[in-house]
Nucleic acid binder design. Sequence first.
DNA 1: TATTACTGCGAACATCGATCGCAGTAATAG
DNA 2: CTATTACTGCGATCGATGTTCGCAGTAATA
Lengths: 238, 238
Amino acid sequence: MTRRGTGDPAAEEPVTVWERPERGARGPAPERSRAQIAAAAVELADAEGLVAVSMRQVASKLATGPASLYRYLADRDELLDLMTDAVAGEVDLTIPLSGDPVEDLLVLAVRSKEVHLRHPWLLDIPTEPLRLGPNGLDHLEYALRALAPTALSEQSKLQTIGLLNALVTQFARAELDGRRSPTTRRKAQAAYLIKAAATGRHPLVAQALADQAASDAAPRPQTQFIPLLRRVLVGLTS
Amino acid sequence: MTRRGTGDPAAEEPVTVWERPERGARGPAPERSRAQIAAAAVELADAEGLVAVSMRQVASKLATGPASLYRYLADRDELLDLMTDAVAGEVDLTIPLSGDPVEDLLVLAVRSKEVHLRHPWLLDIPTEPLRLGPNGLDHLEYALRALAPTALSEQSKLQTIGLLNALVTQFARAELDGRRSPTTRRKAQAAYLIKAAATGRHPLVAQALADQAASDAAPRPQTQFIPLLRRVLVGLTS
DNA sequence: TATTACTGCGAACATCGATCGCAGTAATAG
DNA sequence: CTATTACTGCGATCGATGTTCGCAGTAATA
């Protein structure tokens, strides 16, 4: 218990996973690493969704007991931190910037969306105010570099990046919903919708629905992610 | 077990809460209503967050046992449906449309954001492909009416509305995060951020952070929700 | 060599969503 | 009027979850 600064006896400062040392200085070497744990969790989530990522299942995938994981993590939430940052590292940030903020952010967004499509459980991760690890930090720095040529205030830059992420998840969700086979829930919702539309009290919803069904029959022109994003970005950075 | 249509023995079609009749035709009258249950759940969530909305706590607030709730709901998820639609009903849709899609959607967005500020737990509700009850339907119809004057395709209209909702939640989250007193997690994240910025390897992040801190000291010019939204909407509907 | 600080983990706790089955009740059928 | 049927309320209980405690073993330090 190394006190520091104040003499306050209960001054335990909160610390993220990223700051905490990966292993202590004294005892035996840990048998596993955080990266291994994160990898196991990601693998599980990829295969069976985020619900499958319980302390027990992750532990058993690592051939150990649930309690052991708490030597590496304080929380299940920290496990989600690890997973999130792990896949954030999949985005290639070595691509040189062109100098055009709109185009640069565009390719960044496309890469981010690809990650979301590869790891659908990302959409199920509870949105904290911030979930930023080392890789997330790099991502943010890269986005800020892309925005450097603009005249935006720092606040506006952050706002733009946040908005960009919102759009990425939005479109990723749309694409994934169309791809996955409809769940029981989805079928029920759809049935309710067409039923409600049939009552005549929501004519415009009915029309939109009919159109949607028609375009489903056709080879689906693929929602235009890039042009829409470009329009929004042009509007925000100009 | 009234068979209908096919002779398929296991053809139970999935049904939403909204379609299922509120009470059966035979037995005693239910002692509670779905609206009451939803109200109790909303009250609980308003006071102590969505985590407090467990079947047990809701039941005990209604002076009954957890099992009883399952006479009204099939799932906890359906309880979330009820809650969501209940607060969706708080948006005033009687306001006449001006005919200008951008301005009309703007006031709708502002009202929606107010609901989110009043019920912060809305941001914690797991995002399903669709969570649309009667009030949600009315909301959608209203938004489509606002978009009627545009030349957008039906698909684009729905896309625009979805995007609008994403922005609403985005800004609601930003406002709420600034309002609530920082949690342990948030403090840890913030500490990690300034620490990481101090290493010098993320100069732009550091700069944005410094600027953010400075504007926190000042009376905070309030992030410009409306103008930003207007720009995006103009870009999308033109 | 003794102490200290760590690691792995079995056992256990509280809480969660959900199910089962029974007692009671009201509408319907005969 | 009675029997049947279909419903309601709910106690008891199940399996799964996140998390904690404490002990045995281990390696670095004093």
